[in-house]
Lab assay of single mutants.
Amino acid sequence: MATVKFKYKGEEKEVDISKIKKVWRVGKMISFTYDEGGGKTGRGAVSEKDAPKELLQMLEKQ
């Protein structure tokens, strides 16, 4: 499965596409929420050019 690499609050993070719950576009950025486990929801964003094609496909399906 594909992963998304991004920075959040200065920390490098990587999340599996299957854990992503919601995806939306903000200008040229793709924002998303994902399941961190333990009932927590994380947030992240990547630029449109750095987003994996699976993430862009999720955006188109909504």
Rank of each mutant, 00 (worst) to 15 (best):
M1W: 11
M1E: 09
M1G: 15
A2Q: 11
A2W: 02
A2F: 03
A2V: 14
T3V: 08
T3S: 04
K5N: 02
K7Q: 13
K7I: 12
Y8M: 03
Y8W: 08
K9F: 09
K9H: 12
K9I: 02
G10Q: 02
G10P: 00
E11T: 03
E11G: 07
E12K: 05
K13W: 02
E14S: 11
V15A: 03
D16G: 08
D16R: 06
D16T: 09
I17R: 02
S18A: 05
S18R: 09
S18T: 06
K19N: 12
K19Y: 12
K19F: 15
K21Y: 15
K21N: 10
K21V: 12
V23P: 02
V23D: 00
V23R: 02
W24V: 12
W24D: 15
W24H: 13
W24E: 14
R25V: 12
V26G: 05
V26L: 04
G27M: 10
M29G: 15
I30T: 03
I30R: 00
I30K: 00
S31C: 10
S31E: 15
S31M: 04
S31A: 13
F32G: 01
F32V: 03
F32L: 09
T33N: 11
T33A: 12
Y34C: 01
D35I: 06
E36W: 05
G37F: 08
G37A: 09
G38E: 11
K40R: 12
K40D: 12
T41M: 10
T41A: 09
T41I: 12
T41C: 15
T41P: 14
G42P: 05
G42A: 10
G42M: 04
G42N: 09
R43S: 04
R43F: 10
G44K: 00
A45R: 08
V46K: 02
V46F: 01
V46G: 01
S47F: 05
S47E: 06
S47M: 12
S47C: 12
E48N: 09
K49E: 13
D50F: 12
A51L: 09
A51V: 14
P52D: 03
P52F: 02
K53N: 12
K53P: 09
E54L: 07
E54T: 06
E54K: 04
E54M: 04
L55R: 00
L56I: 12
L56D: 04
Q57E: 08
Q57M: 10
M58I: 13
M58T: 05
M58Q: 07
E60N: 15
E60R: 09
K61W: 12
Q62A: 11
Q62K: 05
Q62Y: 03
